[in-house]
Simulated scan of single mutants.
Amino acid sequence: MVDTRRTDLVLLAVALVWGSSYLTAKAATDAAPVLVVLFMRYLISALVCVPLVLSTARRGEGRRRWTSEEVRIGSVLGVTQAAILVLEMYGVAHTSAANAGLLISLTLVITPVLDHLGGRRRHAPLPVRFFLAAGLCVVAVGLLTSSNGLHTPGAGDALILAAAVVRAGHVVLVGRLTAGRSLRPLQLTSVQTVVGTVLCLAPAAGGLSTLTRASAGVWGQLVYLALFCSVFAFLAQTWAVQRTSPSRASLLLGTEPVWALAVGIGIGGERLTAFTAVGALLMLAGTYWGQAVERAHRTTAQERAAQEGEDTAPSPAASTAAAAAPTAG
């Protein structure tokens, strides 16, 4: 019981950190260019992760610091992760932190769709109820991106919606590339942080001088994004999901948009209109409903496959959907 509570608390802490990252990123991008903030987030993360890998190698684990597979796969995932964060950071700079946290939760319903469309083996079609839940989320998007009435989503909202699609594709890619391979999370993370640092260096170079005028608060935000929202969140999540079920982990990590909403309103002073309040409720209901339907559908398919003597392994993307969100926030 104690271990279960500890694991649940760790997962909730990860969800809280990710939820708070939207307001932190918004505040940081108000003081420095988006790509500078992103470059520093990657650089600080890399300066922590790489020495950790080197220190564990020196203690003698009997394996190389990085295997060729870890470098190759980590590099590919580093590119897709950077794409997500660029979209998210530019998006949150032009919308509210609460909106960003709620809209990015669409990843939960987009991922199973992409997983089924891109699956190498035949999948049973998703039930109609799943698409009803997805439709509820679409209605929620319209309400969330409105103020006093419905209108076309703003640039920031559109970028966050694009980030949700790319993030879902990233989750599916993680599942495909890591399935059946012995890959170490810390090594993969360190490669991704180095790739992100390299990719952001040239675009951010022209704005790095703005950091010389940055306040201690801005530097604190950069460190928080790097150490807590990236390094801590990913490693803590990896530790926790190994000690609980994918369903329970997914449910707890799925509270991220709730925390984003609470932090945005409670700390950021963001205002919720009647339209956006209803949209927030519909988004939470739609994503939780869609996730529950997909999970039940996957479990039934595995049980049917077991009865027929087929491979019962879950879809890689489905089982990593909750654990593949280190890109978040």
Rank of each mutant, 00 (worst) to 15 (best):
V139Y: 07
E270P: 02
V53Q: 09
A324F: 08
A324Y: 05
A124Q: 05
P316C: 07
W66S: 04
P51N: 06
W259Q: 00
A277Q: 10
S245M: 08
A216K: 08
A82R: 03
V198K: 04
A162Q: 07
A155H: 14
G309N: 10
I110P: 09
L272Y: 08
T238G: 06
V2D: 12
A28C: 01
W219T: 03
V138S: 08
P316W: 01
V79C: 01
L186T: 07
S319V: 10
V86E: 00
V14Q: 04
T320N: 14
S209T: 11
S20Q: 02
L106I: 04
H297I: 03
T178D: 04
A323F: 01
L177Y: 09
A179H: 11
F275N: 06
A179I: 00
V34W: 04
E294T: 09
D115M: 14
R167N: 15
L43D: 00
S147T: 15
A93T: 02
A318T: 10
I265Y: 02
E69F: 01
I110T: 07
T287A: 07
S68T: 13
G266Q: 07
R64S: 10
E294P: 03
S21V: 03
H116A: 15
E294Q: 14
S247Q: 14
V172I: 13
A13G: 15
Q221I: 01
